[in-house]
Amino acid sequence: MTEKTQKTDRDLFDLFDSLGIAHETLEHEAVFTVGESEWLRDAIAGAHTKNLFLRDRKDRHFVVTVEERAVVDLKTIHTVIGASGRVSFGKPETMVNYLGVTPGSVTVFSALCDAGGNVTFVLDESLMAHDRITGHPLRNTATTAVARDDLIRFLEATGHTPLVLKVAD
């Protein structure tokens, strides 16, 4: 098991800046669920997301990012993302170890912390129809928006080639 590289939101923003990625961040009180963050829709533009930290039976891990109200069938998603058998939610301690975040803060931006390449990042294709996409910047007390194409560039800069697949109904 390769441990994560400890990073902060400042490291994330510095990488964005070095890549020429425009980003906007809104500070707010901690939110742990999509329901708690509904008010953000009017406060920061972009497709708002939910992120699922999943593992398969071979202990491979995935972060699946979909639009906040998307429905994901956990009984069949393994056939779409290439997992070995059905998936379940990953353990919080593994999330901390691999991605440097705790439950409620997992996000596609956590790829920054996965120096060992332990996690596969999956983006729902309907999410990728939006011009801007939001996520927590490694903490659930802020929300950051970047352009869709810049999100892909960010992931590739962290050594992750995302899978863009239809995972939500």
Rank of each mutant, 00 (worst) to 15 (best):
residue 87 V to S: 10
residue 58 K to N: 12
residue 132 R to N: 08
residue 165 L to G: 06
residue 99 L to D: 01
residue 149 D to I: 07
residue 36 E to I: 09
residue 58 K to E: 10
residue 75 K to Y: 03
residue 38 E to H: 10
residue 153 R to T: 15
residue 114 D to W: 03
residue 52 L to C: 10
residue 85 G to M: 09
residue 25 T to S: 11
residue 46 G to E: 13
residue 40 L to C: 05
residue 57 R to C: 01
residue 129 A to F: 01
residue 77 I to H: 06
residue 126 S to Q: 14
residue 160 H to N: 11
residue 115 A to K: 12
residue 166 K to S: 15
residue 130 H to C: 05
residue 21 I to N: 04
residue 46 G to D: 14
residue 23 H to Y: 04
residue 5 T to D: 02
residue 134 T to H: 05
residue 165 L to S: 08
residue 73 D to H: 14
residue 96 V to G: 00
residue 164 V to K: 08
residue 12 L to P: 06
residue 26 L to T: 05
residue 54 L to T: 02
residue 17 D to E: 05
residue 133 I to M: 14
residue 87 V to G: 10
residue 97 N to I: 00
residue 103 P to D: 09
residue 130 H to W: 07
residue 12 L to C: 04
residue 88 S to K: 02
residue 21 I to L: 07
residue 82 G to W: 04
residue 32 F to Q: 10
residue 105 S to W: 05
residue 75 K to I: 03
residue 169 D to M: 10
residue 113 C to V: 03
residue 127 L to R: 11
residue 68 E to G: 02
residue 107 T to K: 02
residue 93 E to T: 06
residue 77 I to R: 08
residue 70 A to Q: 14
residue 100 G to R: 07
residue 92 P to R: 11
residue 141 T to K: 09
residue 76 T to D: 11
residue 108 V to Q: 13
residue 125 E to R: 14
residue 151 L to S: 15
residue 8 T to P: 01
residue 6 Q to D: 13
residue 163 L to M: 15
residue 33 T to R: 07
residue 119 V to C: 09
residue 129 A to W: 02
residue 15 L to S: 10
residue 57 R to D: 00
residue 96 V to K: 00
residue 47 A to Q: 04
residue 133 I to G: 08
residue 98 Y to A: 03
residue 147 A to Y: 12
residue 75 K to G: 04
residue 120 T to S: 09
residue 119 V to T: 12
residue 108 V to P: 14
residue 25 T to G: 04
residue 1 M to P: 00
residue 75 K to T: 12
residue 56 D to T: 06
residue 69 R to S: 11
residue 12 L to K: 11
residue 62 F to E: 07
residue 40 L to H: 05
residue 99 L to G: 05
residue 125 E to S: 15
residue 9 D to P: 04
residue 44 I to S: 07
residue 140 N to T: 10
residue 115 A to G: 09
residue 72 V to H: 03
residue 60 R to H: 08
residue 120 T to D: 01
residue 123 L to R: 03
residue 102 T to W: 02
residue 10 R to Y: 11
residue 149 D to F: 08
residue 54 L to G: 01
residue 84 S to V: 10
residue 80 V to P: 11
residue 71 V to A: 10
residue 109 F to P: 09
residue 61 H to D: 01
residue 72 V to Y: 08
residue 18 S to F: 02
residue 149 D to G: 04
residue 2 T to F: 07
residue 166 K to E: 15
residue 104 G to D: 06
residue 153 R to K: 15
residue 127 L to E: 07
residue 122 V to Q: 08
